[in-house]
Nucleic acid binder design. Structure first.
Lengths: 140, 140
DNA sequence: TTATGATACTTGTATATACAAGTGATATTT
DNA sequence: AAATATCACTTGTATATACAAGTATCATAA
């Protein structure tokens, strides 16, 4: 059985890596009570209070409709506040999210430790650089 | 606005790459009438008639329950047949899937061309190797 | 040989995500 | 100034995917 007929396919390999990383990310973020993506959004909002929703979509490279959904949940959980001004929606942190920030960042660091322990610190660093470079070259 | 506070995070970057690749994969596979994952499964089944469902899960690195769902759909669309023998489920191609195989492989090649055009052929090759290496080191 | 445990799969359920189409606000053109 | 286009977001809908728990089969040990 040829287990690796797809190993030369970037799409296939990247998806597999993504699923593996997602699994450990969920584990590490579980102490925050949030899935990793929500943690990333909260970090972004905490760092940039009043950020427009569309900017979150840009940074996270998610569809605007997806961001609406995610921020909806954060809002209903009192993790953020929103104000609509004209066609823009600005997203603000709450005391809840500010209090949670350290825990989120700690989870993020644990995630980093988890995968660097598995992959190797130098390899991880290089790989991340190459992956991000690829992302940029696909966004033009 | 710091757009790249996450660019050093493998989880974040890999997810972004995965979404980008998924988008073009869906475009290229659209001529087959199937989403890319189904195409990959059909290629696997066409190459290994009678493959056990669990082996598909191994190769594709998907949860067995996910494979059940995907193969359910392929079965109801007459793309595969299944036989249960004891605790195993063996998956077989049909004439429909065999006829479709060339188209699937063509889509797969178009996908390859798409991302190598964007990322660069040599960079893609190296990146794929590193990504797959990372996958392996996370599966131990 | 029966009991226990492991294996292979399925089902129930939850969720992140995207796309298409909609709404309302702003900008641009005529 | 009115018409049109663009922008920012939301809503409706679909789907891939995972986890937990279930079922049935097989293997191992008592």
């Amino acid at each position: 059985m040829d287990k690796s007929q797809f190993c030369k396919c970037l799409y296939y390999s990247t998806n597999a890596l993504s699923r593996n990383l997602n699994k450990i990310a969920e584990e590490e973020f579980s102490v925050t009570g949030l899935a990793p993506t929500y943690g990333f959004i909260l970090m972004t909002v905490n760092k940039n209070p009043g950020i427009p929703a569309g900017e979150i979509a840009n940074i996270m490279q998610l569809d605007p409709s997806t961001v609406t959904r995610l921020v909806d949940k954060l809002d209903s959980g009192k993790y953020v506040k929103r104000t609509r001004e004209g066609k823009f929606v600005f997203v603000y942190p709450t005391s809840k999210s500010i209090k949670l920030n350290n825990k989120i960042i700690a989870s993020w660091k644990s995630l980093y430790k988890r995968y660097t322990d598995l992959i190797g610190i130098e390899k991880s660093r290089k790989l991340t650089g190459k992956v991000y470079e690829a992302v940029l070259s696909m966004n033009k």
